[in-house]
Design a binder for these strands. Structure first.
Ligand SMILES: [Mg+2]
Ligand SMILES: [Mg+2]
Lengths: 595, 595
DNA sequence: GCGATGTTTATAAACATAAGT
DNA sequence: AAACTTATGTTTATAAACATC
């Protein structure tokens, strides 16, 4: 037992540079799309994305507007980059082949980088679930709704015994009962507790699930309609869904669960009004509403692309009437700030061309981590605006601030981040910095960690994309549990092109507290480890159709011959202001601005 | 090696409730004050507090104004609490004895809680070191001062080759060279590297130092004039000062050092302009400027009370000219908000009656962790201002938010926090939440943890208060290294009674970035583990005199017969606004408002 | 490929505290 | 009501897997 089982290695992403170099489109475009194997278990009936039936040999079309309906638009700031909008029905492989040829035909001087987006597939999802976002429950003190049946293992969430007076406006109470498709599934799974052992037996051959503790806790909490769980409930949920932990004689994993709850700022503890029970919740701003269903189902269907619900947590209504004055957005720095690319530690994220980023003046004077745009790093440092600015991009990654004068820019994939092939990151499973909007008020309370947390990614991608995982998920699902996936309200503060710069620097008031919400945070898909470029392509194809409101895309670099999955990220450095948070705009909407 | 050495247990505080219960003042006031044993090693010459020569049998004086010059003022909000201002010349024991008797004479209805403060001793320290705060160096890009001699192990910080232009106002440059007593010591220690082995031999009998990695890293970085160090330098510094690590064959401790640097948000990495070297720094707002000298010297002098420099890091000058508009302080919530008690995880902190706290509306709707004021918790919840508010105080501690309507209150020690006896906490060694002022701008950059961090205390109190520590600190100090202690600028945003509520919710701009600075954070003294109540008393006495600008005090509870050391904390929930940060007010000044 | 430096996750454990017995 | 036990939380220490330079 001492010999730690090691964290699941399968969680680790692997670098698989797109092998396209020597021979132009060699090996890249297999003639057929083995899309078959997928959908072994519960499938997603609804997605309006008809998967292209593959085998569409049309790789030679190099026109600017591909016959498939593909649109190529220039990048706002990068002359060598093109944004390629691909309809869900298009054949991704042929498009890539065409782009590769196109890129190479112009040589290093012409466009050689292509950001492939497929935003037209999904429904706008803007007003889809205005009320059924995360946090369906009202937490007002008076609302003791949750007192009803929570003390035990969460077996009786249906008995709304108390039903106290609702003090807030329309903060539901009905919302709490809002058993939509998505929530219903988990609701049930939780309801029966252990009785769920139905069809698929929880055989003893359960390996350790490929999820980190952080991910599993998120699965558990998000599975509950009220989005909160007691420690005991979390234990039970995990045991029920991952037999591996049921078999564990030692309780070390429970220690780890508690440890993770504590250290990750993403998990917050709430105390019931009576002070009797503690509920663990997920910081709404950080909650991607990831559920096991999503990951499991997606992995089962060979789809490596999951949309981790971008829901920025509309729970703001719960907050008292603090009503702080929203930071004035005007008079601020970095006037022309537009977009900016971001490269996550292990994640590849880029800003969508449409999105405007408000770079916000740096807080310190550290390195402007805006990755070097070109291989030849330009030390345009001397004339910096503020004298601060710090050095160029440092070694790995850490604490990046934009010199106030620097504009955000779309970063091409030439940086090491993008040539790293698949970015099977789990941003959705990460605990985003978030600026700790709560700390200000709590500042005087030592107990609160507040500040910044060291929460980090926990890849949730199952090892193998398809079928029969060795770690054995205990199903107990209905079958209609995918609504959650479709509801991905993306809060886009301002208009597509450029939002007015807000300077809200981590406001504290919670009223609609979308503090530090990043457009890009929400939707980064988990990519199962691809054993070959083909797999990457396949998963990408699937992603284009299934992922509505997705921010993910592919970065095709014809110079380096690399194809990387990237998170097309629209980042608003300071979204804390409530005024911003409410604006929802779908990814596809944004894309339409460019077509 | 696998069998982890365990973290130094001596770091742990112990509960030593003041044994005063059964027999009124029995056993509490020993006839003599064995103050002798102390001050075995280097003593603090300056403290204007002549220790009472003990054996002062005056426990019966129950008058409101003690002959010693003690003033007793009512608490602004708590009727059962009195604030006792004790001059440095007063005999603490007799005062405590008198207060105990007084408290018991009135029974449970009368005042039974006393907050003992000794604020008159120290110099105002308001303008003492306006310029010699933390971060003597300018970090502006143009300032390549640190490029001079940093690449190596930091052996040549004395050769200020570059001495670039000082961009800021008067931010010194002399400060960097400011070889006061404090900095000098470390400066030298670093200069000679290994040659420091002078008088006290680094015998092989070095036990593990009682400091956490986080503390040692702080020691190391703060010892450098430039307040930054490379990883290698940190290694070297620790090895040089703690022979224990020099003897280590395994390099596991280096792994831990790196681990700590990464996980603790307090530590930030900066990259030099040339991108060649990375320097580790301490977030200025979080830096208490703690040095080994302070801890070591203090422990040697039996003084359990250390003032961990409250310096909120005036380094803000380094920041570019971001110049964000400071949050408007007006129109905000919680009008009558005043003070509030806080109980840290393991730390006991209370707000000073004079301080005003701007509770700031909660961000979420969680538990108003304002600890229950009385044993009988009053669920005055129904008519709350905002309807939110959350439940009562939960179990341990975590994430507390004030319902916007609730006023901050001075928490009496009846809560479990105060009856826990000695609070030998090390808030100075903690990484405060801080709201991550930097995250906003970095929000779009995954690399930055930003948000809140799980940095936490690392008690720095040496196991034994006096002399010859087994862990063997390699001296290499001068002898006159205590300047740092005396400079404890306390930033008190507003006037004593109530500062205008600021709503700055974690501003990001760094210009004078005092974000989330808590009045109370800075000065929490480390209490060496007291083996008896007497020791607590002794240390407290010493503290009263030596600690100017100290915020510490004693909480005497005549009901529970407990005497606890507490941090009298003035907390401003949102001090991020620059306008606030510059206002310095000494603790004694605050106290004078009540006399 | 190797070594230094960084980042994250997993485990074990020491304590603290609330809740039960 | 005191004492012991258990559950729950918090924090630090270590080891390790990877990533990047
Ligand atoms: Mg947590
Ligand atoms: Mg760090």
């Amino acid at each position: 037992m001492r010999r730690s089982p090691r964290r699941p290695l399968i969680l680790k992403r692997r670098k698989l540079p797109f092998q396209l170099s020597e021979s132009a489109t060699v090996d890249v475009v297999p003639s057929k799309q083995p899309h078959g194997g997928g959908s072994t278990t519960t499938t997603t009936p609804q997605p309006p994305a008809p998967p292209s039936d593959g085998s569409s040999p049309k790789p030679c079309a190099v026109s600017l507007c591909f016959p498939d309906g593909v649109h190529i638009v220039p990048h706002p700031t990068k002359t060598d980059t093109r944004v390629v909008l691909i309809p869900p029905t298009a054949d991704l492989q042929s498009v890539i082949g065409a782009l590769t040829a196109k890129g190479k035909e112009h040589g290093p001087n012409g466009p050689n980088k292509f950001i492939l987006l497929s935003g037209s597939g999904g429904q706008p999802c803007s007003e889809v679930n205005k009320d059924l976002d995360c946090c369906p429950l009202d937490d007002s003190l008076t609302n003791i709704h949750w007192l009803s049946g929570m003390s035990s293992d969460g077996n009786k969430p249906d008995t709304k015994s108390v039903k106290s007076e609702v003090k807030k406006e329309d903060i539901d109470i009905n919302i709490s009962d809002n058993n939509d498709d998505d929530n219903t599934s988990e609701q049930d799974s939780q309801g029966d507790g252990d009785a769920e052992a139905d069809g698929q037996a929880k055989s003893s051959q359960s390996d350790r699930p490929p999820y980190s503790y952080m991910a599993m806790i998120q699965f558990a909490i998000n599975s509950n309609t009220s989005r909160r769980m007691t420690l005991k409930e979390i234990y039970t949920w995990i045991e029920d869904h991952f037999p591996f932990f049921h078999q564990q004689t030692k309780q070390g994993w429970k220690n780890s669960i508690r440890h993770n709850l504590s250290i990750h700022d993403m998990f917050k503890r709430q105390t019931s009004p009576d002070g009797k029970t503690s509920y663990w919740t997920i910081r709404p701003e950080a909650n991607r509403c990831l559920t096991l269903d999503q990951v499991y189902k997606l992995s089962a269907s060979t789809v490596g692309t999951t949309i981790y619900q971008a829901s920025p947590a509309l729970c703001s209504a719960f907050t008292p009437q603090v009503q702080l004055l929203p930071g004035r957005q005007p008079a601020r720095v970095t006037p022309g700030a537009r977009k900016r690319v971001r490269s996550a530690p292990k994640v590849a994220k880029i800003d969508a061309p449409a999105a405007v980023l408000h770079p916000i003046a740096t807080e310190m004077k550290e390195e402007p981590v805006c990755l070097p745009l070109n291989p030849q790093r330009d030390p345009h440092r001397g004339g910096e605006g503020g004298g601060g600015g710090g050095g160029g991009s440092s070694r790995r990654k850490q604490r990046l601030v934009l010199p106030s004068h620097e504009e955000p820019i779309l970063l091409p994939p030439d940086s090491p981040f993008f040539d790293s092939g698949v970015a099977s990151d789990a941003s959705a499973l990460r605990d985003m910095p978030q600026g700790s909007p709560s700390s200000p008020k709590l500042s005087f309370e030592t107990p609160v960690k507040g500040g910044s947390s060291s929460d980090h990614l926990a890849s949730s991608t199952p090892s193998r994309p398809l079928g029969s995982e060795p770690w054995k998920v205990t199903p107990l699902g209905k079958g209609t549990q995918r609504a959650m996936l479709d509801f991905s309200p993306i809060h886009t503060p301002g208009g597509p092109l450029h939002t007015p710069q807000h300077q809200h620097y981590h406001h504290t008031h919670l009223h609609h507290d979308y503090s530090t919400f990043n457009f890009g945070d929400p939707a980064f898909s988990e990519l199962p480890l691809f054993s070959s470029p083909r797999e990457l392509l396949l998963s990408s194809t699937a992603a284009g159709s299934a992922a509505n409101c997705s921010l993910e895309g592919l970065m095709l670099d014809t110079i380096n011959d690399s194809l990387s999955k990237v998170l097309v990220d629209i980042s608003f450095s300071a979204l804390e202001d409530e005024d911003m948070g409410t604006a929802n705009i779908s990814w596809s909407e944004l894309i339409h601005h460019f077509i």
